[in-house]
Amino acid sequence: MCTVCGCGTSSLEQKEAQGHEHASTHRHHDHDHFHEHSHDGDKASIIEGATVDFGAGPAGAHVTGLSQERIIRIERDILAKNNDYAARNRARFAQTRIFTLNLVSSPGSGKTSLLVRTIEELRGRFPIRVIEGDQQTANDADRIRRAGAPAVQINTGKGCHLDAHMVGHGLETLKLEEGGLLFIENVGNLVCPAAFDLGEAHKVVVLSVTEGEDKPLKYPQMFAASNLMLLNKADLLPHLDFDVGECVANALRINPDIQTLLVSAKTGEGLTAFYAWLESHAARWARANTPTAVAE
C-alpha cells in the first residue's frame, strides 16, 4: 500500500521500502507535481542515470513539507519469526510423514499420564516420539522413555511456553521415523502456548474434570486454537459435581468446531475413541500432505 495516499490493497509484508511511483516526475491521483525545487529535509537519492528518487529514503515515499525521516509502514506480525520456524517444522513433518499433535493444558491435568498410556497401547502400531516441555526437570521425559518411546526434554527455564524454534532444535536430537506420531507436550499453561504455532497438525487441549466447567470461558484463546478437547480423569466423575454437558457447551461457545472426548488415563475409559480420532485424523492429514494428493 502506498504510504502517501493509501492506494493499493495488498499489505507491505514482504516488500522493501523502495516504493513505487513517488519519484521525481510523480503522477499521483490526477495531478502531477514535478519537483524542480529542493527544500530542507528532502533527502533525495540520486541514482545513476539521473533519476532523482524522493521515495528512496527510509519513509519510502515523499510528501512535500514533510522531511524524509517519517513514518514507515511495516505491517509485520510480531509472531512472524516464530511462524517462519513453525512453517519449517511443518514442512519437515510433511516430508517425513510425521503426524504431530501439540498437547496443551493447565499443570496437573494428566497430559503425561495420558501419553504414557497411549504409548503403551499404540507403540506396536506406530513409531512414537515425544517432545516434553517443562520449565525445569527431565522427569516427564524419563516417564515417557520408561513407557517405551524415545523422548527429548526441553526445559524452557523462565519461559512459559514452547516456541517453534525450540521444537526445531528438539527435532535434531530425536530420530524421527517415517509415518510415525509425534506428541509435543507443551508447558502446563492454558494461556501462552495458544499463540505459538509449533508446526503441529492439531492442538489438543486436555482438561481434567477436577477443574471448573467454565475453563473454556476463562481461557478462550486455548480452546479457540484447539481441535480436540480431552476431558480427562473421567473415573472421578462420580465423586464430583462436574457437569460434562455444561463444559462441552462452554467449549462450543468459544469454538463451534471443537470435538470432545471423555477419557480416563487411569482406567482407560474413552481412550479407544481417542485412538480412533488419532488414526482418522492422521490418515486425513497424510492424504492432504502427500505430493500425489496435491497433484490429483
Partner: peptide, 11 residues
C-alpha cells in the same frame, strides 16, 4: 487476534 507492528516513525 491481530498482533502486528503497523508502522514506525524513524529518523
Amino acid at each position: 487476534d491481530e498482533l502486528r507492528l503497523k508502522e514506525l516513525e524513524v529518523e
